[in-house]
Design a protein around this nucleic acid. Structure first.
Lengths: 290, 290
DNA sequence: CTCACCCGATAGATTTCCTACAGTCTCGCA
DNA sequence: TGCGAGACTGTAGGAAATCTATCGGGTGAG
């Protein structure tokens, strides 16, 4: 069964020529000259020792043997084409799992930059609160707020500290100037998210008045709209502070001990596209050395 | 769907390397060096943009994508191998249809010469009395006693005249010397075959005594054994006459108007092997110019 | 600790492949 | 009837892909 294969490039010419029943049409499809196709087909015919085509003054016809052979060759090439399309199509797709807040605040604004830096990469963003199972969900890269130690099966790369800060819109603050003391802040509307920061900030339990959101990102939207004071990681508001849309009211003075990390599976070598996104994420999101 | 195929020679290296899980083993199978296989695989990986293998210090392992891809490639290559084997195997097989007499008297004695002249050709002899349907029976060449005109779908090439002669063994003749006159011949045992030659030879109907065979070849065997006088085409007995095993008692003096021809289908170009046998048949069996 | 074995990388040689162009044949059209 | 378009054939020369040769790194067995 370990029979020798015929010249494969000759087979490709035969497949195209047999499909179009014309050397010229096949040559255009293959991007070569007509003579090249004719030569390759002749080579194959010599190799097999029989005529695959009947050369007519105007066009081609498959010989009896050629027709039977061609049907099989087409079948094989269709498999090659389909399998290659699948594997190559998947090559440029990178799936990244992030929290909704990270997606809204950092990833989505950076997508144009990613598209420019890595053209041809098709990023699929999976924004979920729960951390994904990297294997089950076919996720190449995850960005999570977590802390060491990490499972041995995971490779982790530090991105930035949580570094909680208080922020509010300049319109809310009016002519008050930062830093405000706790009493001033307590007098302002407070924006709550799922993390219950204000309890820790005030140092004692108790429900505080103010709008409640289930995502940090929504609380920040409210803060941008001048509806109150929010607590969030500095990384999520750095751009808004720099642009003057939010005022930095100072560090929260505590943190949860969890920082932001890039995560991926160890073991299998990452695909080049996934590696490129991994590197890009680090350069785009890692905290500049302070 | 008209997606571009990956480099096919690279695919062949990948197929072999994935099967053997070793570049070195694959290189031996392909008859090239290890570096060549490694290069081809790398080319394919670059083309697809992902790693097909995990390079281990001792051997190879397929990556997840590589394993899935390899299964498909193997499937396609198996089709190529099988189809090519079938078409190439058939390339050397030539089927020839002859009468039993022609087979026994001319074709079979000449087979060693054919094998020497055309090594690699696998001749299948179909010896039947009825003329075969060339298309239905997959017959490449027929040799028949027939006469013009021929159907337009057939190509005919004259081989030799029927040229009937009377022959007998020297043992039967004893000290009689040829030519014998009709009375002498009528006194000898007569050998009959399906053609009823003796009626025509005597010029009048009537059953003659003597052994009856259903094939000329058998009548000639009887003649060789000294059992009587047979009538047959000179071509079938030329070698026996030359060797002294039969004595030429002179022409029959008439013929049926049918001579021997090579026949084959027109239209489809003959396969090279069939063409070679056609040419060989003509040189082996055609009457030398007289 | 050394040898055997396998893969990675690169430069140069070699084989393969393609292009360019001239030739032949047939068909269709004026 | 004659001519042009379109298709295939064949060949020489050059471009491109492929292979060889060789060195280096790393691991595991004896």
């Amino acid at each position: 069964m370990r029979r020798t294969l015929p010249p494969l490039n000759a087979l490709r010419s035969f497949e195209a020529a047999g499909r179009r029943l014309s050397f010229r049409a096949a040559s255009e499809e293959l991007g070569v000259t007509q003579g090249a196709v004719a030569q390759q087909v002749r080579l194959l015919e010599d190799h097999l020792g029989l005529a695959l085509f009947r050369r007519l003054p105007r066009g081609l016809a498959l010989s009896a043997e050629g027709a039977a052979y061609h049907a099989e060759i087409v079948r094989a090439f269709d498999i090659l084409r389909r399998a290659t399309g699948e594997v190559a199509g998947r090559a440029g797709v990178v799936t990244i799992s992030v929290t909704p807040t990270f997606a809204a605040r950092l990833l989505i604004p950076a997508l144009p930059s990613l598209a420019a830096a890595l053209p041809g990469i098709d990023l699929r963003t999976l924004a979920t609160v729960a951390v994904s199972d990297l294997d089950r969900d076919q996720v190449d890269i995850a960005i999570r707020e977590t802390r060491p130690p990490f499972p041995a099966a995971l490779e982790a790369r530090f991105l930035f500290r949580q570094d909680l800060v208080l922020v509010a819109s300049p319109h809310l603050l009016g002519d008050r100037v930062a830093p405000l003391d706790p009493a001033d802040i307590a007098a302002l509307p407070l924006l709550h998210d799922a993390y219950d920061h204000w309890t820790r900030w005030f140092g004692r339990p108790g429900k505080r008045p103010g709008a409640v959101f289930n995502q940090v990102s929504l609380a920040l939207d409210a803060a941008l709209a001048g509806q109150g004071v929010a607590i969030a990681s500095r990384a999520f508001v750095r751009a808004d502070i720099a642009a003057g849309r939010l005022i930095d009211l100072g560090p929260a003075g505590y943190d949860t001990g969890a920082d932001y990390y890039l995560l991926r599976r160890r073991g299998a070598p990452p695909r080049p596209a996934a590696q490129a996104v991994w590197d890009w994420c680090h350069s785009a999101f890692a905290a500049p050395p302070e």
